[in-house]
């Protein structure tokens, strides 16, 4: 199986450790991961902010870059959702027949990382060890977009030594919403305050999720409040072994 990593522009720039963790887990499971260098961005920011025509070249680049791979794996529920739901829509509205075909070919092979592990590889125990108190925030795109359900939790429960604690009001949005956090910063901050309260009430050392964007938001709020809780992509927990994090 030819597996391509779609790192996402945001993780590429801000959280390269998440990409290294995905590679580490997949290689530990015996797979080879390729990183097509022509990849950039899924166009989600442009699409969600109303700049659809500006997203179209990114859709075309995505389809071109990842053509020919059996699986395109990404450590971001929201970017996976963008590709699957909105790339066909943009191709239909703005693209030619060839682009529509390219998009239709690649989109079914795009998988969010935890979904790829559980549904495609059929694995729940990836041989990780992480002896810490951890809480999991189901991001909106994991929960209501991709319907990941319990998949991330199943993977986390199999981690050796982990003390997994429930997050209160887990299913409510953290208030990030991309440009929402800038355009409606006050409302976003009010939502963040409640989410951060929930995280602190768990007395977890680590908060994890399937999207680094939401984690940067919640982690940024926790840090401003002087909390030592660490926001960490769940791929980095799954990559950790008794020898430590890679």
């Amino acid at each position: 199986m030819r597996i391509a990593l779609f790192i996402t522009c945001f993780n590429d720039t801000m959280f390269p450790g998440t990409g290294r963790a995905v590679v580490s887990v997949l290689e530990r499971l015996g797979h080879t991961v390729e990183f097509p260098q022509e990849q950039t961005c899924c166009g989600q920011m442009h699409f969600n902010t109303g700049y659809r025509p500006d997203a179209v070249p990114l859709v075309a680049r995505f389809a071109r870059t990842f053509a020919g791979y059996d699986a395109v794996v990404t450590p971001s529920a929201s970017c996976a959702g963008m590709a699957r739901e909105n790339h066909p829509l943009l191709a239909a509205d703005y693209g030619h027949a060839q682009l529509q075909q390219q998009v239709a070919d690649v989109v079914p092979r795009v998988h969010e990382f935890t979904e790829f592990l559980t549904d495609v590889l059929g694995v729940t125990d990836v041989g990780a060890s992480f002896p810490h108190r951890v809480s999991y925030h189901p991001t909106c795109h994991s929960l209501r977009g991709l319907r990941l359900g319990d998949r991330p939790l199943e993977l986390l429960r199999a981690v050796k030594g982990i003390d997994l604690v429930d997050l209160p009001d887990a299913d409510s949005c953290c208030g990030f919403g991309g440009t929402f956090a800038v355009k409606n910063a006050d409302t976003s901050a009010a939502m963040l305050a409640d989410k951060a309260d929930g995280v602190l009430s768990t007395r977890a050392e680590v908060l994890c999720a399937a999207d680094n964007s939401c984690l940067m938001h919640i982690g940024g709020g926790l840090s401003r409040r002087g909390s030592s809780v660490r926001a960490m992509h769940l791929a980095e927990i799954l990559a950790a072994t008794e020898g430590g994090t890679p």
Partner: peptide, 9 residues
């Protein structure tokens, strides 16, 4: 239309 995080609830 921007008064939402698109959380889907």
């Amino acid at each position: 239309p921007f008064a939402s995080t698109l959380c889907g609830a």
